[in-house]
């Protein structure tokens, strides 16, 4: 008798479990798929959703690079190579070469911390796939440019001001993470040049900036 009851139990159990399973799977027709169709069918690019301090691929704003070589010295794996020579005739510091080997870069962020102007900084770009190692070498200098020299009277070139302000934002993020709003932040909100801001790029280094 027990054989018959267990047989019947098996029949009813298989029917009811299949019924239950079908109801669960059917309910999924009324739910949205979780798939995120990266990269081409996103509502917003992933890069735009990342935080400002995201350590993506490095970028250099040559307009405000002072040629101080702080980043080259800071880089633990020497992926940054800078050539800066003082031009005898004009007395200007000329940058002849500024290469970053992104294939070597380990995104530690040590180079962007000592940068006085925030010229070298991380972007939110992270899609670096390419066909050759050679193309990972970013050469920023096509022809020699004069290094940026902070003016005593404050920056007055309208093309440089926004770049400098952006650079200072990177710098503030690194140098004064928890401190009171630094001089750079307050003055950079106003577009007019103030002595405090413009002198700081040349003189401030991260350690003394808070004092």
């Amino acid at each position: 008798m027990s054989a018959v009851t267990s047989w019947l139990q098996n029949v009813t159990a298989s029917c009811s479990t299949v019924f239950e399973g079908l109801s669960i799977t059917f309910s999924h027709f009324f739910r949205k798929p979780y798939t995120v169709e990266y990269p081409d069918r996103m509502e917003t690019r992933v890069q735009d959703t990342l935080p400002f301090r995201y350590r993506g691929m490095l970028e250099v704003d040559l307009e405000i690079c002072t040629g101080c070589l702080a980043c080259e010295r800071a880089c633990p794996i020497e992926c940054i190579v800078i050539d800066a020579i003082k031009d005898k005739a004009t007395g200007q510091l000329m940058i002849n070469r500024f290469d970053i080997d992104l294939a070597k870069c380990m995104y530690c962020g040590l180079c962007s911390e000592p940068c006085p102007t925030g010229s070298i900084h991380h972007t939110r770009e992270f899609e670096g796939s390419d066909y050759s190692l050679e193309s990972m070498m970013r050469r920023y200098i096509k022809f020699p440019v004069a290094a940026y020299k902070p003016k005593k009277t404050g920056e007055d070139d309208p093309e440089i001001i926004p770049v400098l302000e952006r650079g200072m934002r990177f710098l503030d993020e690194f140098a004064q993470p928890a401190a009171k709003p630094a001089s750079g932040t307050t003055s950079s909100s106003g577009t007019t040049s103030s002595p405090g801001t413009t002198s700081s790029p040349g003189t401030t280094d991260p350690g003394s900036g808070t004092g």
């Binding site: 019924f19 109801s23 669960i24 309910s27 009324f30 739910r31 949205k32 979780y34 995120v36």
Partner: peptide, 15 residues
């Protein structure tokens, strides 16, 4: 049954 599963499941939108 389907309604039950739909109500019981928490819609977690990973996007």
């Amino acid at each position: 049954k389907v309604r039950f599963h739909l109500k019981r499941s928490r819609a977690l939108d990973y996007s």
